[in-house]
Design a binder for these strands. Structure first.
Lengths: 199, 199
DNA sequence: CTACCTTTGCTAACATCGTTAGGTATTTTG
DNA sequence: CAAAATACCTAACGATGTTAGCAAAGGTAG
């Protein structure tokens, strides 16, 4: 049935189109001013069509955040493939995380609920652990010869993630200066360096 | 003119009452469901009265966040008065910050824009630096004898703040387990300990 | 006391939002 | 060809933030 296949393809296209248009709007005007009606306008369909593909607005934002996690994960996977030395890998992961956040601030805010409504109301997404898992792998490799308990390792993973996320969050809320940006990048580099040295 | 004074007092009382009621509602139902009409209902006045005291809803949330900063600052000031040793002071500040966040999650979210709408849209509030300034003082005292450049000191301040804010943010978005809570508290204690040792 | 003005509070509306009910074509299926 | 499913729309509901405009009350000046 070539016809039904075309229809399925059209349906999928509609869905991805909604997501693409929503992302475009979020990038242009910020997620705060994203509305169903604006999406409908942009895809040149009426409002209810959107509800044929998504349960509600939150669902759309959720799917967008998943795209963000996938994008981040791809870079981390690439690091993993290309870099053998776990210390270098960890550094690269940190750098990737940082770059991801500042190249795609809308995604980052969506994914980690910075200034987002409803982001905390729903379920806890397992994707939140994407970064945690990747740095966890690297840190475990580094620490494997030393005699660290599982708990200690776990602490270190959390501490590492936290300082990165904290720096990024803080920077995003007081992003007045470019000075801050370069300075905090250096804070990150230094902190990562010191952290790895003390592993 | 005793009469006009009473009127002024009444006006101020109305204003603080609006804030108090708003805070109550936020604590009970979360800031996401705070609405002007609910506030009006609770203070037993009609909606437009609120706009005689606040420019808009964001203004109300802003004022509430200032209350939060004042509350936090009071605890930090108390630490400063009571603790001489800068290392102990720094530890106490960290503990206070942590406790503040988990005893008043609504305040913390309001102040640092976790899951908040419009928090990033407005101006950058100088109050954001309340904690930074206090730990900055302590860290500077610790570091004063060692030969650290200003830049290095500044990095350390940011790193310290970041790891705390990062841990708290991450905990708040994945607050499924109590396990997480105690674990992360330990992560914080360990990290603070290690940080101070390496100052 | 009367005329005025400021304050205080309200009702009612506007625009926008997320969401849904219900209808009309069109297309697919039996 | 009739029936069922699909695609799509208009129009509404309820809730939101915000404001215009009016009525009553209180204080002030002649």
């Amino acid at each position: 049935m070539g016809i039904t296949e075309r229809k399925i393809r059209q349906k999928e296209h509609m869905r991805t189109n909604i997501l693409a248009v929503a992302l475009r709007l979020v990038k242009d005007e910020g997620w705060q001013s994203l509305s169903i009606r604006k999406i409908a306008d942009a895809i040149e369909y009426s409002v209810p069509v959107i509800y044929d593909h998504f349960a509600n607005k939150e669902d759309i934002l959720y799917e967008l955040s998943l795209d963000g996690f996938r994008l981040l994960e791809r870079t981390l996977e690439k690091n993993k493939r290309n870099i053998r030395d776990p210390r270098e890998l960890l550094k690269a992961h940190a750098e990737s995380y940082w770059n991801f956040a500042f190249k795609n601030p809308e995604y980052y805010q969506l994914m980690y609920g910075l200034g987002m409504p409803c982001s905390g109301s729903g379920k806890v997404k397992p994707e939140l652990n994407v970064f945690r898992n990747h740095i966890g792998e690297a840190i475990e490799k580094i620490v494997t010869d030393k005699k660290s308990t599982d708990d200690e390792t776990c602490f270190k993973i959390h501490a590492f993630w936290s300082v990165l996320h904290g720096l990024i969050s803080i920077m995003m809320m007081r992003c007045s200066d470019i000075d801050d940006s370069t300075m905090n990048k250096k804070v990150m580099d230094d902190t990562v360096e010191a952290f790895i040295k003390n592993l």
